[in-house]
Design a protein around this nucleic acid. Sequence first.
DNA 1: GTAATTGTTCGACTCTTTTCGAACAATGAC
DNA 2: GTCATTGTTCGAAAAGAGTCGAACAATTAC
Lengths: 101, 101
Amino acid sequence: MAKMSLPDVLYALSDPLRLKIVRQLADEGEMSCGTFDVRIPKSSLSHHFKVLRDAGVIATRGEGVRRMNSLRRAELDAAFPGLLEAVLHAPLPRERRRLAG
Amino acid sequence: MAKMSLPDVLYALSDPLRLKIVRQLADEGEMSCGTFDVRIPKSSLSHHFKVLRDAGVIATRGEGVRRMNSLRRAELDAAFPGLLEAVLHAPLPRERRRLAG
DNA sequence: GTAATTGTTCGACTCTTTTCGAACAATGAC
DNA sequence: GTCATTGTTCGAAAAGAGTCGAACAATTAC
């Protein structure tokens, strides 16, 4: 992960599903691929992880039979100060959530 | 421009050329389409303006025979606090500049 | 009216991205 | 060794985005 490029990072974050993944990582810390709250085939999910990894947004390490993913907060903050925070605090497009009442 | 969506905005900003347009607008204020420092056919340029407009990143108003473009700073800041500033202050990927030698 | 200027739209083409099942690899349990 | 679990990679299909010339629209000047 020598160079992170702003367009690549923005692109990686421009997909609603990937954004959701990033936010869950921000909330939960390290998570294995299978524990995300998304319902898509694992090959599709794996693709999105690859996009995020290639952009430098997440890091993955093997732990036994599973891959633990984490946000590369420090690197992102260093390269693009304020960006991750802005993205994490922004209202999600249409989070499928029912308002009470 | 009812709702701006974060993925749409991030996507619009994820292209190096569009990023360059946005930065020139940030520096210069209002600019007509023909005054940007980019060398591509006008139909291609028009396409990128449309992407930025549709995402809510820029606004365009007609003034005589030309279209004046401006950054929708206030709206962007309101919808996604800190995002535009982070993007504008981030180092640009690799400005196509020839190294001597 | 004609002509010049500024941008958009159209249409076709190319390239990239996304999707998803199937096959594969790596680990752990047995 | 076999078997189950977790994820990646492969391959092909579908969808999407970018490029660019040509045609078109809108304005201004004449």
